[in-house]
Design a protein around this nucleic acid. Structure first.
Lengths: 241, 241
DNA sequence: GTCTATATCATGATAGAC
DNA sequence: GTCTATCATGATATAGAC
């Protein structure tokens, strides 16, 4: 009797097993890194059999890719959708830098509150992975979502016509770093923030992180240019005129 | 005869072996991470025997700590020395934010040109490790050099009396992230910077990275406060007056 | 689809000769 | 201090019964 129920639920349990593995892998990769997490830990945590990972995903590397794809496909479609929407509403005018930054980084940070999209766990995993040494996964991310970066970069070029393009690319990069580190939420962070914070100020609240980060990013993006770049900026502005 | 020469050089070869192991470990940990690097790779690369790591350092973890200590002791002494010097020359007045940022992050970045202090290899290792999941090493770093962060944080509090302290701590954290990511120099960086850079513009030149990063960091540090924090800033300024 | 059992290999660490 | 040889463990992956 139990066997019949088991057979009847085979399809459902299959899907369930896949998700359970992905959830456990996401959590463990976040906490201990790719190389620091074994398939025994993952399947143990997920409550499934050791062989299930290879059956459902083929290998540990393929599992890692699927962990990211599950979240990033949605995120990057959302980013594209927001850019489409903002550009449709701007009447052909360049967007404001704050709109672009919010579309890219704000959309990312708002995932932290969305448990069904991975929430803070996935965000931290992503933040850490961007500087982690597992080459195959950085390559995968760069290739899979290059088109999104490209469109946002182009939007920034239009929004800041008198800033040299090289400078914008660098600043985009600095913004990525500040954001990654903030969401990675390492213990180094905790040590820093534990000092000298006024009583009652809840540093850890995510709804405050977003405006804090936004101010910082925009301040950096629009900062005065370094001297050698300011000269290039004048040339670029002259060409455009 | 050969045996006598060997014995006579024992001390020298000892030191040499230690340094060779540290150099190889620094390079490999940077490229593949702590968990992704085996002691066989390290000793193979260093051209020494496998057992030498445990003889000289005791364990893989202790080796990793020594890799960092070798570079960071100097860096953090230099940071302290610069702060002492600047404060001695300011006549009791608060320092300028740009001085403080240069003392902390400029001193770090200038290590990239100093091959005998680890150069770019160590800088990248450090940048990656700050978000890496190896807990023991982040704990080690946080405890070992906490006093330096504390002094720089205090200097920033004095330099920016009407910015809430919590805000300064966060912005310090964002600056750390932007810098880590920039020096980690992942492939994600390379992909980003390969797009749309004008011909002849050498994006990779380190002497340009420093002023670029400085402008960005200072722009972020001095950015307008987010609304909720601006209110706190007024209170803080009122208390100080 | 799920399980047990196992093949195959790499890891960190150490004992003991030299 | 350096070497060889080896231990004990844990890794990914798979074969084959159910």
């Amino acid at each position: 009797m139990a066997a019949e129920v088991h057979e009847g639920m085979a399809e459902v349990r299959n899907i369930d097993t896949r998700e359970r593995i992905l959830d456990a892998a996401e959590r463990l990769f976040m906490a201990h890194g790719y190389d620091g997490t074994s398939m025994r830990q993952i399947t143990g945590d997920a409550g499934v059999n050791l062989a299930a990972v290879n059956y459902h995903f083929g290998s540990k590397e393929a599992l890692m890719q699927e962990v990211f794809r599950r979240r990033l496909d949605w995120l990057n479609e959302e980013r594209m959708r927001m850019l489409d929407e903002m550009e449709a509403g701007s009447g052909g005018q360049p967007l404001k830098p704050s709109q672009i930054v919010d579309g890219f980084f704000g959309t990312l940070l708002r995932m932290a509150d969305d448990e069904k999209r991975g929430g803070l766990t996935f965000l931290r995993l992503l933040g850490r992975t961007l500087t982690e040494p597992s080459e195959f996964i950085r390559t995968f991310l760069a290739e899979e979502y290059a088109h999104v970066l490209e469109r946002y970069k182009a939007a920034l070029f239009r929004a800041l016509p008198d800033v040299p393009k090289a400078e914008i690319v660098w600043r985009f990069h600095f913004m990525l770093g500040a954001t990654s580190y903030a969401i990675a939420g390492t213990d180094a962070l905790r040590v820093v923030t534990d000092w000298g914070i006024e009583e009652g100020d809840s540093v850890d609240r995510l709804d405050r992180l977003l405006p804090r980060l936004m101010s910082f990013l925009l301040g950096g993006l629009r900062a005065p240019l370094p001297q050698f770049a300011a000269a290039e900026g004048e040339q670029q502005a002259a060409r455009a005129a």
